[in-house]
Design a protein around this nucleic acid. Structure first.
Lengths: 254, 254
DNA sequence: ATACACCTTTACGCAACGTCAAGGTCAACA
DNA sequence: TGTTGACCTTGACGTTGCGTAAAGGTGTAT
């Protein structure tokens, strides 16, 4: 029983290219080469190919298969166990991925049909991560590793109630701020109320509050284009106004 | 806020090479190139990169991300849903893989600790597949597609009881055969009993039995090196002896 | 002036083949 | 005997998302 590449290929259900490749990487050499340079495979090669394909179907890479099959001392069970661990890890990653994709889908397609709760569950981790990526480095430099880590940790541990609270606080603050801006006086009662709400909002993220840090953050809202853009989105000048209000609120300015 | 490659890279937690690559494939071009040829990124690019990385973390490939982000008409939700289906399919495959790997491990390491039941559950599909690969083409040519397909289907549908029965039948047959071989007469009662057991065994795989097919198979046991090797493993000459016994049993020979 | 940390483009490497391309071999048929 | 047509060969590029040199220019601090 002798086979040329094509014969063996169709027998085993692989392509001729695959067999040439296996020859090339030395995992399956033909029994001999005939006078015309054709690869000729025998029964032993058929069996070896079966083994190779068996392992391949288990997702083992060719390099490992080669090791398993060439050195008989090689512990194939151990190899498979390691392989299994890799597969389990891969599945864990995949599950996480699927979960995130599903969260993203329902968040965008369901628009407002999602309850706050679901939103919170799905996104709080993501929010922390995105925040880290965007501002992590600079904030860390300014406020130190510890403060930021604690802030993140605190946020992650926030309960559903906390989340709703914090969301509402920010909304209220922005409302007050917008109203106060119309008056134009950062020392006005409304503006000071906004500053106070901002402090309350902040304490949900920071483990400890200090007037200095609060004032520093307010200044950053103006200095950093990104924060500035966020606050100035509705009305230009909001960032500066909020800063002034906070500076007065914290006593850094009168 | 302007960034060079390295700056943006460390800000976003990717490598400079990645940014150059994203430039190359046109997914993220720098805001401008300065007089020295340096890539300069602005705020808009930072935000765009965030988006890219967000999708990348969901496992979406760059080509798709590009489509999602460049054409605003592109339905990103639909893209994510398709992506989700792919991920689910991938997980299904992965689960199957893990199951097979685990079966293989326990089969080889636990040797005989596995019960027949477990063996059966784990391997009957694999057996059919391997059998297909090894002999499928030739058997199909000799006995026709239909017979083989039905045989496979029947095997796959075999119950636990059937499996035990068929396993026992083969064991009994081989025992009888070995005994009969000692006597050396294929027409002996023992040898004919073996042939009968062989027929019974065969009927578990074939949907219909005929003496001619049975005799043909017996002849193949001798002509085909692989079947021959299987039967001659314990005692050389077993394949021929079985063939002769079956030929007599089926009346093809006296 | 020199060192050193940046930046640039070009290009190979990775896994496991698919897919031409250019050219030799073999059996069959007119 | 010439010629198809179905085989076979080697060589080489493409795939995905970068990592990793290599070779050379730029910017700035000492």
């Amino acid at each position: 029983m002798e086979y040329t590449v094509q014969k063996l290929a169709s027998l085993a259900g692989v392509s001729a290219r695959t067999l040439r490749y296996y020859d090339e990487i030395g995992i399956l050499k033909p029994a001999r080469i005939n006078s015309s340079g054709y690869r000729i495979y025998g029964q032993r090669e058929v069996d070896r190919l079966q083994q190779i394909l068996f392992y391949r179907e288990l997702g083992v890479n060719l390099e490992t298969i080669k090791e398993i099959m060439t050195s008989p001392s090689y512990d194939s069970t151990k190899a498979l166990q390691e392989h299994r661990v890799q597969l389990l890890e891969k599945r864990k990653q995949l599950d996480l991925l699927i979960k995130n994709v599903e969260k993203t889908i329902s968040a965008t397609e369901g628009r407002m049909t999602m309850s706050n709760k679901e939103k919170f569950e799905g996104f709080k981790k993501q929010m922390v991560e995105e925040n880290e990526k965007k501002y992590g480095k600079e904030i860390r430099e300014k406020y130190g590793e510890d403060t930021v880590n604690k802030s993140n940790a605190k946020f992650m541990d926030m309960s559903q109630k906390d989340y709703e609270m914090v969301t509402q606080l920010e909304a209220q603050m922005r409302e007050n701020l917008a109203e106060a801006l119309k008056i134009g006086d950062p020392s006005s009662e409304l503006a000071q109320k906004a500053a106070d709400l901002h402090k309350q909002w902040l304490t949900y993220y920071w483990t400890e509050y200090s007037k200095e840090a609060h004032a520093g953050l307010a200044q950053m809202y103006v200095d950093d284009e990104r924060f500035k853009a966020y606050y100035d989105k509705e009305q230009p000048g909001t960032a500066e106004f909020l800063r002034d209000a906070i500076l007065i609120y914290t006593g850094a300015k009168k």
